[in-house]
Design a protein around this nucleic acid. Structure first.
Length: 873
RNA sequence: GGGCGCAUAGCUCAGCGGUAGAGCGCCGCUCUUACAAAGCGGAUGUCGGCGGUUCAAAUCCGUCUGUGCCCACCA
């Protein structure tokens, strides 16, 4: 096959009868890259079109979700490239701080070591080595998929340039007082040993135990309810609602805290819901965000009773127990003292887990760095509100607004080693210096850099401009910022999209990083179920690509891509797409065998047959339709439109009709060969962004030209021919009707039947050859005797079925169809007789009903005539 | 607890005010200038229930049921 694509189409190339993607795809991709088709030129005069890839984690490998989004991004950039844009699809990877660090730590654990055994520097070296060796597997897989990315611009969030961008923006935010350091309650993962942000916490319904504990003695006592008994060691108050009469007498008093020698005050706080539980809440400011807030309001001390691993640090019988052991031990001890007044178990409540390792998150009081999100989030919201940035589909913008309008300050420090280290230095006398990218860190005794690194989303939030060279004013930044479309899953609106909006607007003087946010759904299995390892329904797209070709996987995904909705995909569907690719292959093969060509001018309309004019009319309509769908990110619809145009209209009808023309030879055959060449040329171009491989292989063979990748996208010539469309519709009706009759009468498809056609006076006269060929009708001989007469579309087809025909079955069928047509006619007449309808309905609607009536009347006439023509009528 | 979405053919989904659609699956018959991974023909639905608006409702409104997702400081 590959040799053939090299040949000019002077002779008919021999294509195998089946398309073999495995032989075609790899070499084609490498050729595209070698020829630099995907390399964008910042100096070009062409208008830019830019998409930055959502950078996959270095630890990641290609899954169907990537394949899905990549297909769509690839289709968008490929089309724009063909449309003459300087198209840049910029690839790269994310260092994925916590995920990657965990991965390498796991590897170390297998060697019986921890990161602390290596020390920070050696550990980070080790991660880099891991990255070089195992990271970025996905980049190779993207080649298999056919991603037309500009490899010369590949970026990594920890590259020197991107690190500089991180430091630059950190410094700017710090100087603008949008970054600050504060001690707050954060979400702490006792396994990863780091703070995580609110959105990195996943809530699950867990079984717990709600125990009610009596605090204090006698009159001076009350009962609190808790699911986290172990935190009582750190209680510094009990809170009740100020208007709760039950506890009015206790407010301001001290009560004894069980198991300790401390007494704690009872405070009044409106946060307490008197209806819930006993209406009294234990307050542990150091271990619960609400309690922390209460503590602030009432100036309570915070008492930390657990270390970073969740072990109890308070001296006494519970010292050293982990939080869960401590919980049961404490409940046990309280029970012995008779202080447990009620227990409810299981008590289902929502508990936060680390999104990376599923460990139960421990709220923890600690010193962290924060982004003051207010003004940034406001700008991010406004850019969408005032239409500078469009979210597609539009109803997803609600989610975006909900988030940006209610955003809490963002905790950006992580107690990890892998990532961008916070560029802040602390002096021996408590000085704090934020160091900019071109500044020397303060030297001398006692200065140390902050040991934390930044949240991985901090650097990916800069991606749309850091990858283009910012903070330098590079030609790339000049040319390709702002990018055009951000295409990503709706699951990372908060993690990533909102942050890019905030940072982009902030760093780029109010210019949003993209004008359109196209949100996709998630890929699911063929029953619409989420793919997950525990269900065992996860599919490796590479398996399907091996079996059916990348094009098949891509086409299936594109066909399922309804905006913002989840995409179910099953192997059967990939097979169906493979079949489509094979169909294109064979149709082109047929065309080449019959001399289809793109050479020379398209013949003028008067030299074209009705079929030629029809298909060209449909072709141009399809071009317009596909363009409109692309501009609206309607991938499913454009894939569907192309599928049906190509298969139903071109392959099933035009190609079939052209067989008669080719058999006939002569001038008309030449014209048809040129038209078929044209139709395939354009159709392959239209299909190329979605199924780049087959189309490239076939198109280069068909045209002898270099590559589809750098070919001009087709334009709607404006050619339409309603008359030809109507004529071919009639032809199709005759053929379908007679075929149906033949099948109903049990004739073998190949069996030749003598027939007499009366086409006089209709436009069908010109199609007698095609009708006879497609219906296997022989000329009527001397002894012709019509046993079935089928009037259809103003013509009559009389058949001599030397055997008998099943008159009764046919009569029944016709009667049924006739009744349906009559009913429809009656309905239409009723509508058209309805004055209210005529008065209020749109003209178009009325026109539609009129058309329907005409059709119903024609059907009645035809079916009546067929009925009358039945023998014995 | 709040918000959003979805319920249409056996399955997965389009359609979103004017005659119910597609793909796959299913049932027949077939090697016919390419393709059996194909061709031709066929069957299949009270468009979740109940109300309402309208000349007209799968489509708009209300409500119920089922289902999915997101958010939240459910002690």
């Amino acid at each position: 096959m590959t040799e053939n694509t090299q040949q000019p189409n002077t002779s008919t190339p021999e294509l195998p009868t089946q398309y073999a993607p495995a032989e075609v795809e790899g070499p084609l991709y490498e050729r595209w890259v070698e020829r630099g088709y995907f390399t964008a030129d910042a100096k070009s005069d062409k208008k830019p079109y830019t998409i930055v890839i959502p950078p996959p984690n270095v630890t990641g490998s290609l899954h169907l979700g990537h394949a899905f989004q990549h297909t769509l991004m690839d289709a968008l950039t490929r089309r724009k490239r063909m449309q003459g844009y300087e198209a840049l699809w910029l690839p790269g990877m994310d260092h994925a701080g916590i995920a990657t660090q965990n991965k390498v730590e796991q590897q170390l654990a297998e060697e019986g070591k921890s990161r602390h055994d290596l020390g920070r520097e050696a550990f980070v070296d080790r991660v880099w080595r891991w990255k070089e060796e195992y990271g970025g597997r996905i980049l190779g897989q993207m080649r298999r998929l056919g991603d037309g990315v500009d490899w010369s611009r590949e970026r990594f969030t920890m590259d020197e340039g991107l690190s500089k961008a991180v430091q630059t923006i950190f410094k700017r935010l710090y100087d603008d007082e949008l970054i600050y350091r504060a001690e707050r309650i954060i979400n702490w993962c006792p396994r990863c040993l780091t703070a995580i942000s609110d959105i990195e916490v996943e809530y699950q319904e867990d079984d717990g135990e709600l125990v009610s504990i009596r605090y204090g003695e006698g009159e001076e006592s009350l009962v609190v309810a808790t699911t986290r008994a172990e935190t009582m060691l750190g209680d510094t108050a009990v809170a009740v609602h100020p208007e709760d009469e039950r506890y009015a007498h206790l407010i301001g008093k001290q009560i004894k805290l069980p198991l300790t020698d401390r007494s704690i005050p009872v405070v009044a706080d409106t946060h307490v819901d008197p209806e819930f539980g006993t209406g009294a809440v234990k307050v542990t400011p150091a271990h619960d965000p609400n309690d922390f807030a209460i503590g602030q309001r009432h100036d309570l001390p915070s008492m930390t009773v657990m270390d970073e691993r969740g072990n109890i640090t308070v001296h006494g019988p519970f010292l050293g127990l982990d939080r869960f052991e401590a919980r049961s031990a404490i409940v046990g001890a309280l029970r012995e003292q008779g202080r447990i007044v009620a227990e409810k178990r299981p008590y289902v409540h929502s508990v936060g887990h680390c999104s990376r390792c599923s460990t139960t998150v421990e709220p923890r009081l600690s010193m962290q760095w924060w982004v003051k999100v207010g003004p940034l989030a406001k700008a991010a919201g406004d850019a969408v509100r005032d239409g500078r940035v469009k979210i597609h589909p539009a109803d997803m913008s609600k989610r975006y607004f909900d988030w940006v309008d209610n955003m809490h300050d963002w905790c950006i420090s992580r107690q990890l080693w892998w990532g961008h280290r916070i560029p802040v230095w602390y002096g021996p006398d408590g000085e704090v210096v934020c160091v900019g990218p071109d500044e020397e860190p303060p030297g001398g005794e006692g200065w140390t850099q902050d040991t934390d690194v930044l949240d991985t989303w901090f650097s990916s939030g800069l991606w749309p401009f850091s990858t283009l060279g910012w903070p330098e004013k590079t030609p790339d930044l000049e040319k390709f910022y702002a990018t055009d479309v951000l295409l990503t899953g709706h699951d990372i609106i908060f993690f990533w999209v909102a942050r890019m909006m905030m940072f982009g607007l902030y760093a780029m003087d109010g210019v949003a990083p993209f004008h359109t946010i196209a949100l996709t759904g998630l890929v699911r299995d063929e029953r619409g179920k989420k793919m997950s390892k525990s269900f065992g329904n996860v599919v490796d797209p590479l398996d399907w690509m091996d079996a059916y070709g990348s094009d098949a996987v891509r086409f299936t995904l594109a066909k399922g891509a309804n905006p913002g909705t989840d995409v179910p995909i099953g192997e059967d569907w990939v097979q169906a797409s493979r079949n489509f690719a094979n169909k294109i292959w064979n149709a082109t093969r047929f065309a080449l065998m019959n001399g289809a060509t793109v050479e020379g001018e398209l013949p003028p309309a008067e030299k074209l047959s009705a079929a030629d004019r029809w298909i060209l009319s449909r072709l141009n309509a399809t071009v317009a339709e596909v363009d409109a769908f692309y501009d609206d990110y309607q991938f499913a619809k454009l894939a569907d439109a192309l599928y049906h145009f190509a298969w139903d209209e071109v392959f099933d009808w035009y190609v079939e009709l052209s067989k008669t023309t080719f058999t006939g030879g002569g001038e008309q055959a030449k014209v048809s060969a040129r038209v078929l060449g044209e139709v395939l040329d354009v159709t392959l171009k239209l299909l190329h962004p979605v199924v780049p491989f087959v189309t490239e292989a076939l198109w280069t063979t068909l045209t002898g030209k270099e590559s589809l990748v750098v070919t001009e996208w087709p334009a709607d010539s404006g050619f339409r021919d309603a008359a030809a469309e109507a004529e071919i519709a009639n032809l199709q009706q005759v053929i379908t009707e007679v075929r149906r009759f033949r099948a109903d009468q049990g004739l073998q498809p190949g069996q030749r039947v003598p027939a007499r056609l009366e086409l006089g006076g209709t436009s069908l006269a010109a199609h007698e050859g095609a009708i006879r060929q497609l219906l296997r009708l022989q000329p009527a001989g001397e002894d012709f005797s019509a046993t079935a007469t089928l009037p259809v579309a103003g013509a009559t087809v009389a058949l001599d079925l030397s055997g008998t025909i099943d008159v009764e079955a046919e009569r029944k069928r016709l009667a049924k169809a006739l009744a349906a047509a009559e009913k429809d006619k009656a309905q239409c007449e009723a509508k058209l007789g309805n004055e209210a309808f005529l008065a209020k309905a749109a003209e178009q609607a009325v026109e539609k009903i009129r058309g329907r009536l005409v059709k119903a009347e024609a059907d009645i006439e035809r079916l009546g005539a067929q009925l009358a023509a039945l023998p014995g009528a």
